[in-house]
């Protein structure tokens, strides 16, 4: 593990991570992708999901919500609307949010409210991603 890539995760409420890491894996537009040192310039949108980076053999998990990421000059920058590490996540709250979203999705089908449905789906995805990240962190 001689070479590393510089990872930066920036959100509207400030930078979250700025570190040299070995590998980064993130939920991209066409599915999860991994980035190692000296990757070719790359630009992708980011979906809601978990971002994993490895440093000194230790895996770290972050829950990220929509945004995009840029790789250039051995530097990977994530610009996302929010990012939370496993220990920051309130699992109970995420579970509640999931239930709420489930209920809304069930109701939305009868009301056929497209906008609310999309919002509930996004909320659901966020909740699920949070729960997953929190679980991994707990292990």
């Amino acid at each position: 593990m001689a070479e590393s890539i510089h990872l930066e995760v920036v959100t509207p409420s400030g930078p979250i991570v700025s570190d040299d890491v070995d590998i980064v894996s993130a939920p991209g537009y066409g599915g999860d992708f991994g980035v190692l040192a000296n990757h070719a310039p790359f630009l992708s949108t980011i979906k809601i999901g978990s971002l994993v980076y490895k440093k000194d053999g230790k895996e770290n998990f972050l829950m990220v919500s929509g945004g995009f990421c840029e790789v250039s000059n051995n530097k990977i920058t994530f610009l996302v609307e929010s990012a939370e590490s496993g220990k920051e996540i309130d699992v109970d709250r995420a579970l509640r949010a999931k239930e709420r979203a489930e209920k809304r999705l069930a109701e939305a089908k009868t009301q056929t409210e497209k906008i609310n449905m999309a919002r509930a789906q996004a909320a659901m995805q966020r909740a699920l991603a949070r729960i997953r990240v929190a679980e991994k962190h707990g292990k």
Partner: peptide, 16 residues
């Protein structure tokens, strides 16, 4: 313009 043309885009630049 920093090597802008060499980027790999995912999805296409237009969609991004």
């Amino acid at each position: 313009t920093k090597q802008a043309g060499d980027y790999i885009y995912e999805p296409s630049p237009e969609e991004i």
